[in-house]
């Protein structure tokens, strides 16, 4: 008996230790980036162009490029993702075609990001002749984000009480009217949360944009969606592996990592807050 309780104490403490280790990983990454990156952050770093072969200056065009390409991703992936989720949650019954659609979405979620990059090159850059551009990259990232947005939106729609749909239909609403006036408004925070998280992933991705539009260095911001662009994740990759004076630009690399990480975390925290509020709102409703 005593041996048993000793075993239990040891076992449970091992599990605790594992959790702490996982948290430690996160802590170390954050500490490393924030402690060494914060020194270079100032308005010059955020709002200047890189200078002197990217050994001086800021990362302004990379920030703008990431925002621009994420915007294209948003415009493509969010309507597409929401439409698909509405179809699956509200219209699709369980038949072969719809099962095929669901299976495709689940499998798309597991396709490596570099494969999306290959697809983008072959289809958008070469096939459609969109060239190496914001549009090609935005669409590629859009495809990558799509399964995520679909899944989270469908989840949000499923959480809307069935009675909202029935109630509207009983009053003579068509199916679409019931969805538009009654289901979507109730699911909106869940949809927004999922979309933000999906976009935060897109913003941090590198592999899909590598060959579809991102550029090493540009003296101008992209003027249209058919221009190529600079992006934060790629810039970090360049500064830490491809630069001619890697040690010299290390502080800039830390700064870039810090800004990128902050952008992603801010988006995640916003999403978390929306979800948290929504949960409380739902509780109040019951």
């Amino acid at each position: 008996m005593r041996q048993n309780s000793l075993q239990q104490r040891l076992g449970l403490n091992t599990l605790r230790f594992f959790v702490l280790l996982v948290l430690l990983f996160l802590g170390i990454i954050l500490w490393e980036v924030f402690s060494k990156g914060s020194g270079v952050i100032n308005s010059g770093f955020l709002f200047d162009y890189p200078r002197k072969g990217m050994t001086l200056g800021g990362i302004f065009p990379t920030i703008m490029g990431t925002i621009f390409v994420t915007l294209v991703t948003t415009i493509f992936a969010i309507p597409m993702g929401i439409a698909t989720a509405i179809y699956l949650s509200e219209y699709a019954n369980d038949n072969t075609v719809n099962r095929l659609i669901r299976a495709s979405i689940r499998n798309l979620a597991g396709v490596p990001s570099i494969i999306y990059g290959l697809f983008g090159v072959a289809v958008f850059v070469q096939g459609m002749g969109l060239g190496s551009s914001v549009l090609s990259s935005g669409l590629t990232l859009g495809l990558l984000t799509l399964p995520y947005i679909i899944t989270t939106t469908e989840e949000a729609l499923k959480n809307v009480p069935h009675s909202y749909r029935e109630g509207a239909l009983a009053l003579g609403a068509t199916k679409w009217e019931a969805i538009w006036t009654n289901v979507l408004p109730s699911a909106v925070s869940g949809i927004v949360t999922g979309s933000i998280l999906g976009l935060s992933r897109a913003a941090g991705e590198t592999a899909p944009i590598l060959f579809t539009g991102v550029a090493f260095y540009l003296r101008y911001l992209p003027a249209s969606v058919s221009d190529s662009f600079m992006a934060m994740p790629y810039h970090l990759y360049i500064l830490s592996t491809q630069h001619h004076a890697i040690e010299e630009v290390r502080p800039l690399a830390y700064g870039t990592a810090l800004v990128l990480l902050s952008l992603v975390f801010v988006l995640n925290i916003i999403a978390f807050i929306i979800r948290y509020r929504y949960r409380n709102f739902n509780k109040a409703r019951i």
Partner: peptide, 16 residues
Amino acid sequence: RRKIGMVFQKPNPFPK
């Protein structure tokens, strides 16, 4: 359904 209305078991006001 416009001519035949329905009231459900559980009150289901819309969140409006």
